[in-house]
Amino acid sequence: KQLDFISLGLSLVLGTAGLPHVLMRFYTVPTAKEARKSVTWAIILIGAFYLMTLVLGYGAAALVGPDRILDAPGGANAAAPLLALELGGSIFMALISAVAFATVLAVVAGLTITASASVAHDVYDGVFRNGQSSEAEQVRVSRITVLVLGAISIVLGILAMEQNVAFLVSLAFAIAASANLPTILLSLYWRRFNTAGAVASMYTGTILSLVLIFFSPAVSGAPSAMFPTVDWSIFPLTSPGLVAIPLSFLVGIIVPFLTKPDNLDHLTAEMEVRSLTGVGVEAPVDH
Rank of each mutant, 00 (worst) to 15 (best):
L3R: 05
F5E: 11
I6L: 14
S7T: 03
L10D: 02
L14H: 04
A17E: 00
L19Y: 09
L19H: 03
M24P: 01
R25T: 14
V29Y: 06
A35Q: 09
R36A: 10
K37H: 00
V39H: 04
W41R: 09
W41H: 08
G47V: 11
G47F: 02
A48D: 15
L51Q: 04
T53K: 10
L54G: 05
L54Y: 11
V55F: 12
G57W: 04
A60H: 05
A60I: 02
V64T: 03
L70A: 13
A72V: 06
L83P: 01
A84D: 03
G88Y: 05
F92T: 10
F92G: 02
L95A: 15
I96V: 15
I96R: 00
A98W: 04
V104H: 04
A106W: 05
V107D: 08
S116L: 01
S116C: 08
H121L: 01
D122P: 03
D125C: 00
G126P: 02
V127S: 00
R129T: 00
G131C: 05
V139M: 05
V139R: 07
S142T: 04
R143F: 09
I144E: 06
T145L: 11
V146D: 03
L147F: 14
G150T: 11
A151P: 06
L156I: 14
A160K: 01
A166E: 01
S170R: 02
L171M: 12
A172S: 06
F173W: 06
I175N: 01
N180D: 03
P182D: 07
L188T: 09
W190L: 11
S201Y: 11
G205L: 07
S209K: 04
L210K: 03
A222E: 08
P223L: 08
A225M: 02
T229D: 14
D231C: 01
P236R: 09
S239L: 09
G241R: 04
A244L: 09
P246R: 06
S248R: 01
F249H: 11
F249Q: 08
F257H: 15
L258I: 13
K260V: 07
L267F: 15
V273E: 12
R274W: 08
S275R: 05
L276C: 00
G278F: 03
V279C: 04
V281R: 13
E282G: 10
